[in-house]
């Protein structure tokens, strides 16, 4: 790849929630800012910009990643997933999302997108997690509203439900 000059904006292309997307960015632009303000997918939130709070967590090539600690240019050609890609279709919730709603696992909802992304990645690889394992994964996220307990319950409940079905059952809302 040629050297990208600091003084210019350069095209960045990758797949976002299964769709090819493209935008332009200075080399220094954070992935979080690119997704939100260039591509207009504002579901991913920015809480600390130093990698601690976890609100901006997305999936890059199937792994959890802080989008505030990733440059847009770094995901060129990657497969990125965000909270907007979790629901199977408009008007439906994924099993995990539905479990969150059922268990009141969110209040203000600001940190929720990142938590959902971590759990979505984790549960795909670990279909039968223990509660300490879920708490361990969640320890990379800060939530100020819920005290975490309902999030843990929602995650465990979703894992149980997912293990019962071979495909992601979905849930209607609205």
């Amino acid at each position: 790849m040629p050297r990208l000059s600091a003084a210019q904006r350069h095209p960045v292309r990758f797949r976002l929630n299964g769709e090819a997307v493209e935008g332009i960015a200075e080399p220094r632009m954070l992935l979080a800012d690119f997704i939100r303000h260039e591509l207009g997918r504002t579901g991913t939130h920015v809480g600390c910009e130093h990698g601690v709070c976890g609100a901006c967590t997305v999936s890059i090539d199937g792994t959890m990643a802080r989008s505030c600690l990733t440059l847009a240019a770094q995901v060129e050609g990657c497969e990125v997933r965000t909270v907007e890609g979790l629901a199977p279709e408009p008007g439906r919730l994924s099993v995990l999302q539905a479990a969150f709603r059922r268990h009141h696992a969110l209040q203000c909802g600001f940190c929720t997108a990142g938590i959902l992304m971590s759990l979505d990645v984790y549960l795909r690889a670990h279909p039968a997690p223990t509660e300490p394992e879920i708490r361990e994964v969640l320890s990379g996220h800060l939530c100020r509203c819920t005290g975490y307990a309902p999030i843990v319950r929602a995650a465990m409940d979703a894992a149980a439900e997912l293990s019962l079905s071979t495909r992601q059952e979905d849930v209607r809302y609205v």
Partner: peptide
């Protein structure tokens, strides 16, 4: 009673409308 919250569907799908959104 404890019905599910009307706020949650938007918040869970990335459709919240916070000030920076």
């Amino acid at each position: 009673r404890s019905p599910e919250r009307v706020e949650d569907a938007a918040l869970l799908t990335g459709n919240g409308r916070f000030i920076d959104d």
